[in-house]
């Protein structure tokens, strides 16, 4: 409830400052439309249905891509923990792949993967997998030795240790990674849609910008920002489900 109010206040402040800049007129109107024309552009896109369609495409791509990338990242982290050789070797690969921005991947992957779902899956997963993987590796290897000894003294096997001790202990840090990954996932989707898309919010922004429709571009940027909030909320909800014990524990000790 409180966060809802905060979001409302934040939008109000932003729009207020926006309108002020518009009224003062330091930026030409061509580049900086009034709040009213922003709202009009938003309303018109909403009514024509194109907004809902684009929103659905973008959000589902980001959410599905993030889920797949996180699952893959955690799986790889578990592999790296079980087989240290793999972990050490995969480090070289992750070091090289991590700095590659999604914008660079899209044009090269288009020919092999086409313009459809395969392209999105590849680009999103390639750039989004790292936070979950890196945090997973770090967290799995730094589980408290006392907890591990406790598990071993109770006769846990290697897999049981992983299942009952290491993985739950590592989850809070993994979720920190996934939260960061959510931001990257949205970036990857928007970029892919801009460069190779036929639909989605990224494509719409691009198209409207080409058509010099400034109010629509800004309105769409707001919508994209709200998607960031929504994606974050989704991850936070999951985090509560999976690591609620940790969040409550931290609140107690603070």
């Amino acid at each position: 409830m409180k966060s809802l109010l905060r979001t409302f206040v934040s939008v109000a402040i932003l729009l207020g400052v926006w309108q002020l800049v518009y009224i003062v007129g330091i930026v030409p109107e061509k580049y900086f439309p009034s709040v009213l024309s922003l709202l009009a552009a938003f309303w018109q896109m909403l009514m024509s249905g194109e907004l809902a369609k684009g929103e659905l495409m973008t959000f589902s791509r980001a959410a599905l891509g993030l889920s797949a990338a996180s699952l893959l990242g955690v799986t790889l982290a578990i592999l790296a923990d079980l087989y240290p050789v793999f972990g050490r070797g995969f480090r070289y690969i992750s070091d090289v792949l991590q700095p590659i921005p999604p914008a660079a991947v899209v044009p090269m992957a288009v020919f092999s993967l086409g313009l459809g779902i395969k392209l999105y899956a590849f680009v999103i997963i390639l750039v989004t997998v790292w936070p979950a993987y890196m945090n997973g590796v770090a967290a799995l290897s730094s589980v408290s030795p006392v907890q591990l000894a406790a598990g071993r003294s109770l006769g846990c096997s290697r897999l049981e240790l992983l299942r009952h001790i290491k993985l739950p202990a590592a989850m809070p840090e993994i979720f920190t990674g996934i939260r960061y990954a959510a931001t990257i996932a949205l970036i990857a989707v928007i970029v892919s849609e801009m460069l190779a898309g036929r639909d989605g919010l990224g494509f719409m922004i691009f198209k409207k910008a080409f058509a010099n429709r400034t109010p629509e571009v800004f309105a769409l940027m707001f919508v994209v920002a709200i998607n960031g909030v929504a994606l974050n909320a989704l991850v936070n909800g999951l985090r509560w489900l999976v690591t609620g014990w940790h969040i409550r524990m931290m609140e107690r000790t603070e």
Partner: peptide, 15 residues
């Protein structure tokens, strides 16, 4: 306001 801006992915401002 800062929080709002933070959720906007950087490439979205490119157009």
């Amino acid at each position: 306001v800062i929080d709002m801006l933070a959720t906007l992915p950087p490439p979205a401002v490119v157009p």
